[in-house]
Design a protein around this nucleic acid. Structure first.
Length: 427
DNA sequence: TCTGGGGTCCTAGGACCC
DNA sequence: TCTGGGGTCCTAGGACCC
């Protein structure tokens, strides 16, 4: 058994970098990407960070700074970002199959089986090929634990002299790097724990690493104890290769405008149920629970949330059933006097898709179940071949008014040929 | 007027059983 | 009648992540 070596590959300002690949004219301009409804800032170029605009800042509060500095705004284009993300994943998979895709812009690699003599040089080589093949700048951290790899990639990004790569494998400066990282920037220390750690005298990652395991567990539970060990180079969080199977699925949106109309909300719920069920089928699972929730505006007085759920004796991934059940749940909590701001559908308590055959045969009507399976498979095949929403349920079409606004979305360059710019050749 | 969307894990407490 | 302890399952809420 070899000693663990992890690399974290982390895309810099990911959404902004994706936009810049297709807009090289923006390479040195301040650029921000906004969430659904153009509500919050979800990605910032370094220039925007330098202007003091924080992550998740409500866009309307910073409009003046946006205008004054000519910040270029994009509505989030997740189809583009997802596609760019897959390109990087494919590239990394050629290095080693032992990869954990941790998020849309971060992957861990297990390097322990590879024959790498100089980890820093290896990091620079990987960084250059990703830049060459995708146009995206990344930072790379290499260390004996995931938490240290994460911290190292962050240092690689922030310290210009490191040029995007830091290896903490046998690095005599490890303690010094730890001493430069505020405790709140450590992976796993959020806004609640950071003040608590500072009060304990642990203001930096180095101080945190020096806590006794007992004290760490007292203050932060078992995860905290493991985190402290990780900072000392003892790996507690293994590579998660099964990451791709979700344990719950949520689809929700803030509406383009608040609404009291049942038909609008039903159309939204039908649409959420459809995409959630598709994702569920793609993961080869069935749900034993499904639920909905409705919210008023949480930033206005009198904020309220309503929710209902249904438990299935026979788990399902059938879109038709999920739509009719969510609409039914909705009718139990809907009041025409309320003004709704946001709604969502969630699925949970999953079983493997072959569970019905192995465990419930006899308890269900097999013919009926097979027909439902065949129906959903046909829908998925047609939609894959001819485009999303080729086949859909009528409830989705009751209204479009719920759909979020996205006034400044860029073309989906890599997935929608019809949105590509056209070049005219002038003779 | 205008404040996102999607996840995971841990813990404490209650119900229930032996 | 009262007493003890342990195990499991479920749920709600908290905390974190990107």
């Amino acid at each position: 058994m070899k000693n663990p070596v992890f690399a974290l590959i982390d895309c810099n300002n990911f959404f902004v970098s994706c936009e810049r690949v297709f807009r090289p004219d923006l390479a040195t301009k301040p650029v921000a990407v906004l969430s659904s409804n153009d509500g919050c800032v979800v990605a910032r170029s370094n220039e925007v960070k330098a202007l003091g605009i924080p992550m998740a800042a409500p866009a309307f509060k910073y409009r003046e700074i946006f205008d004054r500095h000519g910040i270029v705004k994009f509505s989030a284009n997740f189809e583009l970002y997802g596609n760019m993300s897959r390109r990087i994943t494919e590239l990394l998979t050629t290095i080693t199959p032992r990869i954990e895709v941790y998020s849309v812009d971060e992957s861990f690699l297990d390097l322990s089986q590879l024959d790498i003599r100089d980890h820093t040089a290896w990091g620079h080589k990987v960084r250059e090929s990703i830049l060459q093949w995708t146009g995206l700048p990344v930072s790379i951290g290499i260390a004996p634990s995931k938490s240290l790899a994460k911290l190292a990639s962050d240092r690689g990004k922030k310290v210009p002299a490191l040029d995007g790569v830091l290896s903490l494998m046998g690095n005599p400066e490890t303690d010094w790097h730890l001493s430069q990282v505020p405790v709140g920037d450590v992976w796993g220390i959020g806004w609640r724990l950071a003040p608590k750690m500072r009060a304990e005298g642990a203001g930096t990652a180095l101080h945190l690493a020096q806590l006794s395991p007992q004290r760490a567990q007292q203050l932060m539970g078992i995860r905290g104890r493991q985190l402290v060990a990780e900072l000392n180079g003892i790996s507690c969080f293994p590579l998660d290769l099964e990451h791709q199977k979700p344990k719950s699925i949520l689809r929700s949106r803030t509406f383009g405008e608040d609404t009291s109309l049942a038909s609008v909300i039903e159309a939204a719920l039908a649409s959420f149920a459809t995409t959630a069920a598709f994702r569920l089928r793609r993961s080869s699972q069935l749900a034993r629970r499904a639920g909905i929730f409705l919210d008023t505006n949480k930033h206005k007085p009198g904020f309220r949330r309503w929710s209902r759920e249904v438990i299935y004796q026979v788990p399902t991934a059938d879109t038709g059933q999920l739509i009719s059940d969510t609409i039914n749940l909705f009718s139990q909590i809907y009041s025409p006097r309320m003004s709704y701001h946001r709604a969502g559908v969630w699925l949970g308590d999953f079983r493997p898709a072959d569970y019905l055959q192995t465990d419930l045969l006899g308890a269900i009507d097999p013919a009926k179940h097979d027909r439902a399976q065949a129906r959903m498979q046909a829908v998925d095949v047609l939609n894959e071949r001819f485009g999303k929403r080729t086949i859909r349920y009528a409830t989705e079409d009751l209204a479009q008014k719920w759909q979020p606004r996205h006034h400044t979305r860029s073309p989906r360059y890599t997935t929608r040929p019809d949105e590509l710019p056209t070049a005219k050749i002038v003779p």
